[in-house]
Simulated scan of single mutants.
Amino acid sequence: MIYVVATSIAKEGFEDLYRESLISLVTPTRKEKGCLLYDLHQDKENASHFIFYEIWDNQSSLDKHSISEHLSSHQERTKEWLVSSDVYVLDRIA
Rank of each mutant, 00 (worst) to 15 (best):
Y53A: 00
V83H: 10
E12L: 00
T78C: 06
Q75L: 15
I9T: 15
A94V: 06
F50H: 06
H49P: 00
C35Y: 05
P28K: 07
L40I: 13
S73F: 09
D57W: 07
H49Y: 14
S85P: 02
Y18W: 00
L36S: 04
L25H: 04
R30P: 02
A6N: 10
H49F: 09
I67D: 11
A94G: 12
L22P: 02
S72F: 09
Y53D: 00
L62T: 07
V83F: 08
P28G: 07
I2M: 11
V83C: 03
S68G: 11
I2D: 04
K11Q: 09
I23S: 01
D63S: 14
E12C: 00
S84V: 00
C35W: 04
E69K: 14
F52N: 00
L22Y: 05
H65P: 03
S21R: 13
S61H: 07
I55R: 14
N46I: 07
K79I: 03
T7V: 10
V87E: 12
Y18S: 00
T7K: 15
R30F: 04
Y88S: 11
I2A: 02
V4Q: 04
V5R: 15
A6Q: 06
Y3Q: 06
K11V: 03
Y3F: 15
L22Q: 01
L17W: 06
S60Q: 15
L36A: 00
Q59W: 12
E69T: 15
Y53L: 00
L17M: 06
D39E: 15
H65L: 10
V26Y: 08
I55A: 11
L37W: 07
R77M: 04
C35G: 06
Q42P: 08
E54H: 06
L90M: 15
S48C: 03
I9S: 10
L17I: 05
S60V: 14
N46S: 10
V26T: 08
E32V: 01
H74R: 02
R77N: 09
F14T: 06
Y3P: 00
A10F: 06
D39K: 15
A6S: 14
Q75M: 12
H65C: 08
C35H: 04
W56C: 07
I9N: 12
I9Q: 15
S24A: 08
E15T: 05
S48D: 09
Y38N: 01
L25E: 05
S85N: 13
Q75V: 09
V4K: 03
E20F: 05
A94R: 08
D16T: 14
F50I: 01
M1N: 03
M1C: 06
H70M: 08
Y53M: 00
S8H: 10
S8E: 09
D86Q: 10
E76F: 11
I9R: 15
I55E: 14
A6C: 06
L90S: 04
L17P: 02
S60T: 15
K44S: 13
H70P: 04
